[in-house]
Design a protein around this nucleic acid. Structure first.
Lengths: 112, 112
DNA sequence: GTTGTATTTGGCTAAATTGGCAATTAAGGA
DNA sequence: TCCTTAATTGCCAATTTAGCCAAATACAAC
């Protein structure tokens, strides 16, 4: 791998890394519904506001989120909605994993 | 966030995390072209074979890759090709980031 | 069984990530 | 100005991750 190729993949990895955290995935899902302020998200998530703020700034720096100030409140929003397409594929992976480990059978019992 | 929701997002984050590394993105791109053995990938990547092997096992455990043995050689392949759809969106993010920082202007000068 | 090739695993250190708390900044209202 | 609410930043400890080396495993050929 030469330097140019390395940069190419490092830039892409940085964006994916910004999504690779359960809390941040929750935030992305929530922002799909509309913009939210830090406090609202903090209540939903249930951890310290500083923690949530840091998660938001990680995604903002990666270019995934945008923010807008209104008085003392800052509203975050999804800047690149195509991110949501990821989840369909992630579901496929999870489905495929479950099929192999047999979990699917259990989780489907109620439907049988 | 209750436990069920937490598990939901943790499972998804684990899969995304398995992709959130430049070397692993390179491997995914390479496997799109067809299955590859550890040695081939090691030569292309240029790091220790043990390092590449670990990257592969991380993605295999996440359910992204499959492997197949042929004698002493193990061929890895992309198990869930929809993963490739990610890259189009990642490009959008990168494009959007570049537009803001002005890098796009520079990188396009040759085309003007 | 021994040798050779392909791959994985264990052990180690360095670096990055996470999350809470306290302190700070930012803006609005009394 | 002072107080309140909203959010960010700095600091720190705990955990996780990355990558190299050396050792171990897996399989095939002799």
């Amino acid at each position: 791998m030469n330097d140019k190729l390395k940069n190419h993949y490092e830039g892409r990895a940085a964006i994916i890394k910004a999504m690779a955290h359960p809390t941040r995935l929750f935030i992305i899902d929530e922002l799909e519904k509309g913009e939210r302020c830090v406090n609202d998200l903090t209540v939903m998530i249930g951890s310290d506001m500083s923690t949530v703020s840091k998660h938001l700034s990680i995604m903002k720096n990666a270019g995934i989120l945008g923010d807008r100030r209104e008085g003392t409140t800052i509203y975050y929003s999804l800047k690149v909605p195509c991110i949501l397409n990821f989840f369909g594929c992630i579901n496929e992976v999870i489905f495929s994993n479950a099929r192999i480990s047999g979990e699917l059978v259990d989780s489907c019992k109620s439907k049988v």
